[in-house]
C-alpha cells in the first residue's frame, strides 16, 4: 500500500509495536510507536502545515498521544480530507 502524505509518497508498514514509515523522496525511515491513530488525528488537525519531519517530531512526543482508530478507517478519512491518497499495488 502506498500513501501520499502531503504530496510526498510514503510507504507504511505496521509492526506489532510500531508503525514504520518510509519517505520515498528523502529515503528516510521513521519509526512511530502506536502511530496510525496519532498520524491521522494530527494530520486532520493541521493538514496544510504537516511536513513529515514536523509530524514525526510531534508524534514522537509521548505526551501528545491522541485516541486510537483503525488504520483503514483512518486512511479513508484522510482521503476524504484530501490529505493523502491511497494506492493499493
Amino acid at each position: 500500500m502506498t500513501v501520499y502524505l502531503v504530496n510526498q509518497e510514503c510507504d507504511f508498514r505496521p509492526m506489532d509495536d510500531a508503525m514504520l514509515i518510509f519517505h520515498g523522496g528523502s529515503g528516510e525511515t521513521y519509526q512511530l510507536a502506536g502511530v496510525p491513530a496519532c498520524l491521522v488525528a494530527e494530520l486532520l488537525r493541521t493538514p496544510e502545515a504537516s511536513t513529515l519531519e514536523s509530524l514525526v517530531i510531534r508524534l514522537s512526543d509521548p505526551e501528545s498521544q491522541p485516541p486510537v482508530v483503525l488504520v483503514e478507517e483512518a486512511l479513508e478519512q484522510l482521503r476524504k480530507a484530501g490529505v493523502v491518497s491511497v494506492r493499493h499495488p
Partner: peptide
C-alpha cells in the same frame, strides 16, 4: 531507479 526518485523529489522540493 532509487536515484531517479530522489532526484525528482529534490526537484519537487
Amino acid at each position: 531507479d532509487r536515484n531517479a526518485e530522489a532526484i525528482q523529489w529534490e526537484l519537487q522540493t
